[in-house]
Every structure is written in C-alpha cells, then in structure tokens.
Design a binder for these strands. Structure first.
Lengths: 217, 217
DNA sequence: CAGTCATGTGACTGACCGGTCATAATGTAT
DNA sequence: ATACATTATGACCGGTCAGTCACATGACTG
C-alpha cells in the first residue's frame, strides 16, 4: 500500500503520478519499468517517490489492482439484456472488453501483461487478478448453464480458460500489440471487428465441426 | 547472424554457448536477459562474446529461430494417421506440442515469450515466427476442411488464432508458468492432461452449445 | 626463427538502476 | 517568533548493464 503521504497529495498531483505510472508499467514489464524515468517525467525528486511508496512493487501492485478493477467494473456494467441469448451476451462481453482496451490501452496492457507475462512479479498481485478474472468468467458461464445454452457436461474451468484465451486474443492482444489508438479506428474497422466477434462466438457456441454434435457426453 | 568465428568453434563449446543462451532467454525477457550473466556462467570473457555475435539481438534472433524450428519440426513429424478423424488429429497435435514443452521447457518458453510477450523485440524475429506458426496452423485447418470435418464457412484465419490461443494455454502456458519438470509428471498427471485435451478438442469441435448448430452460415 | 592472422581476454567506459539519507523547505499551531 | 511535524530534494551508494579496446595467446605460415 502506498504511504499516507501519497493519499494526502493534491488530487491533481496524485493523478499525474498514477497516469505516468500506468504508462510506464504498460510499456515496460515489471523489471524494466523505471522509477528514475517516472520521476524524471513527473519533474519530482527521486526521494519524493519514496515518500509516497514503499518501493517499486508497492506502486506496481496498486496500479495493477486499479487497472484490473477499472476493466472489470467496465465490463461488469454490461449485464444480460432481456430477450438476449446467452451467446449473444458473450459476444457482447467480448466486444465490451475490446472497447475498453481500445479506449484505455494502458490499463488494458498492464492487465494483459500481468496475466500472460512470463516474468516474475513480486508478491501476490498476479495470483490475485487471475483469480478475480476466473471468478467472473466462471460466474458468466454458470449463467449459460442455467439458461440451458451450455451443455451441462462442459467443464466450466476449462471453458473459462478457453474463453479467457479468446478474449485475450481480441482484447489485451490488440491493445498490447497493435499501436492502435481508439481515434485511429474507422467505423469500418469497428464493423469488421464486430463481425469477427460474431464469428468467434459462433465457433465457441457450435464449434468448428461440419456436423451436429453427438448427444450426451 | 552470428559471425563466422562462432561457427568455427568446436562443437562442444558452440553447444555450450547455445545451451546457456537458451536458458537465459527463456528465463528473462529480451531486455532483462544479460550477456554478462551468460559469459560468467560460461567462464568466457565478455570480449569473446563479441567475437561470436554482433550484439545481443544477433544471438537472440539466432536462438529464437532455433527454438521455433525445433518445436515446429517436432510437431510436424506427427502427420495424420490412417483412419484418424481430423479432430482426433488436432487433439494429438495439442498433446504433442505440450509434450515438447514439457520435455524442452526452455525452447518452449522462448517461443511463448516471443509470441505473446508485450515487450518490444528488436528486428523482425517476432513477425517471422508468428508468420511461420500461423502458416502451419492454416495448413492443418485446410486439411480439416478438405476432410469435410470443418464447416466450409469457418474463417480459417480466425480459427487459427483460436487454435493458437488454446494451444498456448496448454503448451507454452504450462511451460512458462508451471515450474513443472517432465520427470516430475506422474502417469496420473499425463492421463489428466490427456483428458483435458480431449475436452478442449470437443469444445473446439462442437462448441459449448447444448443444441445442435443451425445449418448453413 | 619471424611474420601473420584468427581468436581470446578482462579492465574499462558511460549509462542506468533501485533505494538511501542528510538537509532544506514548507506548513502549522502556539 | 518559535517549535515541531510533514514533505521535498538530489547527491550519492552499490550494483548491473551492453559494448569497446588495447593487448595477449596461439596456430599456422615462410
């Protein structure tokens, strides 16, 4: 946790620090993110940084949790609409996730990095956000089962993983690899992306097979 | 490309250098991988390194290509067996990929890192191996279409991405995140993993849906 | 032997890192 | 004005880094 001093800061300065930190941890992995660079960009003294935070990890854990909460809250606002089928809902969730990553590329990248990065991250941050994401996905999938749209014999943990992988491909992946700014997207791009989501959801729903599924397990 | 000097080295020494480099680039991303650490581990002078390689990236690109080639060759050896259905074959490819990553965790991790890492990698290395992987996956999926087991209206590029995501979850992901050594796997573990592959393949094939797919597009 | 060329060496450079600390500035309550 | 607590500062520490270079070693020539 950041020190009290940090929370005593005027809002503007506190925000400025977080903004810079978010960019720094989005563009560099934990190891390579540089406190020296951040304080230089902020125009504050190195020592001031250590008035606000215990150490590098203190800031990182705070920023990562913030980014994860932002993203999850944004997505969770979208609940299923009346008359909507479960898989239409899933498609919408994928879209919403991607919209977040396009509109807020930095938080998106931080989360993506923490989820899929191979570098060690000190502390429990990675475990924590992984857990919260899987919890949410399992909850969504349970809804699909309750609605009778997901076969009851599907392993939900596995399905959550696969959903995760697909979502990462379309959300975090785009934010992390394309240097796409949300403004740079033409309406045509959006239509194209939406069509792709529809196809992906269809595959998730019915699979790649040319034939109907066998009944039962 | 490494300098001629490197290729003039006695086989044993050349191998030793590659072995150390593979571990270094598997355990650290490009930025954090350290030449100083490698030469220390090898017991050679820093200067010698620069007799063999232009710079850090020269070695990295070489090692990454090597790892990718190894993995792809290993997987490609497995062609479809007579009487085998396409999706059985896909399941087997997933398994084979995972077996490679378990038996050779370091090359597996390097490839995974290059494919999914968010850090910049100098040069074209990343683009190159991504391309070669997608090419292979598209080729496999085309086989599925030819065999009439994949619906002809499925977008193969998208399917390749999804296959990729799933494979990464089970291959690179395991190698990258578990500190699992191949010896540490009990026969029970292998059975469990195989069952998971079967479930994942079933989802890829028939989807999550409780109902048969609609006909046509 | 001397001459030449490929190979090996490690001290060194300049840069950057995370983190510390003595000191200075600022605010605040009396 | 004085005393006290909080906050701000940047030089500094030990460490690591990629990359260089003047020089040493060795191997093969004549």
């Amino acid at each position: 946790m950041p020190k009290q001093t940090f929370f005593n800061l005027p809002d503007e300065k506190r925000m400025a620090i977080l903004d810079v930190a978010i960019v720094e941890f989005a563009e560099n992995d934990y190891q390579s993110a540089s406190i020296s660079r951040m304080v230089a960009r902020l125009g504050i003294a190195k020592g001031s940084f250590y008035q606000y935070f215990e150490d590098k990890n203190d800031l990182y854990a705070f920023v990562l949790d913030l980014a994860m909460r932002e993203r999850l809250t944004f997505v969770q606002q979208h609940t299923i609409a009346a008359g909507q089928s479960f898989f239409e809902y899933v498609q919408e969730l994928l879209e919403v996730g991607m919209r977040f990553d396009l509109a807020h590329p930095y938080p998106g990248r931080i989360v993506y990095r923490a989820l899929f990065g191979a570098e060690p991250i000190p502390g429990e941050s990675r475990t924590r956000i992984r857990q919260s994401l899987l919890d949410y996905q399992r909850q969504v999938l349970r809804l699909g089962v309750e609605m009778g749209e997901i076969a009851p014999d599907v392993n939900l943990d596995l399905a959550a993983h696969m959903l995760n992988a697909v979502a990462a491909d379309f959300g975090g992946f785009i934010a992390a690899h394309f240097q796409m700014s949300p403004e740079g997207l033409t309406p045509g791009d959006m239509t194209l992306l939406r069509a792709t989501f529809a196809q992906a959801t269809r595959i998730l729903r019915y699979g790649l097979s040319a034939r109907p599924p066998a009944n039962g397990a």
